[in-house]
């Protein structure tokens, strides 16, 4: 029996636990990475970084709907050149994988930023081809089979570290896009980004988000994304990272049974603060013990056997 039953592997990355920090959450600075590393996070995905710095959208950039959120931050980020310092510092102090999330306004930008991120020390890149609220990046690529293929291929040809592709749920058939991503060379898939959505204030009669549209995350989307993971596991052979409304260890187990090798946490940090990683890890551990599984990798995709 392994000494650490939570250990898992994603495309050559070694994770001490399957709970990862999802992209977009508080990940500007190394000090914060260290804080959540202490909470037992298995890997960190940074905010999406582009070639140039971006201010993001005006507020409101987030609106609460039931116990989920619609957000349209607008990809605020300091740009890869300026973010280099944080990547380098992070690599010196962290002993868990650092995955830089990358977006671009062209296929060339994806390639340039991914290459730089790896050169500065990132252990892998996660391609954000699915941001639902910024024009000319994200969805425009993630919903276009041909562009998606070219973007991934271009990055794959130019970096020697794992390339993870974050898929959009805003497509008719996610397995088609997953197949294209894998054919283009994706080493793993993150399923999924947020769901395209909006909210209107009935008193003022105005849309609430400054960008009008945003991406819906949190517990309400969990069953939808779980279904995506289940379908993807049947379709592709590369590892899947589940991301969508996971707030407790039961949700995490569900995603792994559906086929996720690891899971990402974002929205749940607002709901339960940074201790959520530790809480989920503890819960998974006791579940494995109770059910007499040797390690977490044994339950990946188990619910496919019916």
């Amino acid at each position: 029996m392994k000494s650490n039953s939570l250990e898992t592997h994603i495309a050559g990355l070694h994770l001490n636990s399957p709970t990862m920090l999802a992209s977009g959450i508080m990940s500007y600075s190394v000090d914060f990475f260290q804080r959540i590393a202490k909470e037992g996070v298995g890997g960190i995905v940074t905010k999406s970084i582009g070639l140039e710095s971006r201010k993001g959208f005006e507020n409101p950039t987030i609106v609460q709907i039931n116990n989920g959120f619609i957000n349209a931050m607008g990809l605020p980020n300091p740009g890869i050149a300026s973010y280099a310092n944080e990547i380098k510092k992070a690599k010196n102090v962290l002993n868990i994988p650092l995955i830089v999330s990358v977006y671009g306004f062209s296929i060339e930008e994806y390639e340039t930023v991914a290459k730089k991120a790896i050169n500065y020390g990132a252990d892998a890149v996660e391609l954000n081809v699915s941001c639902p609220h910024v024009k000319d990046t994200g969805l425009e690529i993630g919903q276009n089979p041909e562009k998606l293929f070219r973007a991934i291929k271009k990055v794959k040809n130019n970096v020697k570290k794992p390339v993870i592709v974050k898929l959009s749920p805003n497509v008719t058939n996610i397995t088609e896009f997953a197949t294209i991503a894998v054919e283009a060379g994706a080493d793993a898939l993150t399923a999924t980004n947020t769901i395209h959505a909006m909210a209107i204030d009935i008193e003022s009669t105005k849309p609430i988000l400054s960008n009008i549209f945003g991406g819906f995350s949190g517990p309400p989307i969990k069953p939808i994304i779980l279904r995506c993971v289940y379908e993807l596991f049947k379709t592709v052979t590369v590892p899947i990272i589940g991301s969508g409304g996971i707030t407790n260890w039961r949700d995490a187990i569900e995603f792994m049974l559906a086929g996720a090798s690891a899971i990402q946490i974002g929205t749940a940090i607002a709901l339960q603060n940074t201790k959520v990683f530790n809480d989920i890890n503890k819960g998974i551990k006791s579940y494995l013990k109770k059910k007499r599984f040797k390690n977490v990798e044994q339950i990946v995709g188990l619910s496919q056997k019916i």
Binding site: I25, S27, F32, I62, F69, N71
Partner: peptide, 20 residues
């Protein structure tokens, strides 16, 4: 500040979020 609830990271100082 953007989200006000400790998610977006806009208000981070060191290991702390000013909002949360």
């Amino acid at each position: 500040m953007r989200c006000g609830i400790g998610l977006c990271g806009s208000c981070v100082i060191g290991q702390y979020r000013v909002c949360r």
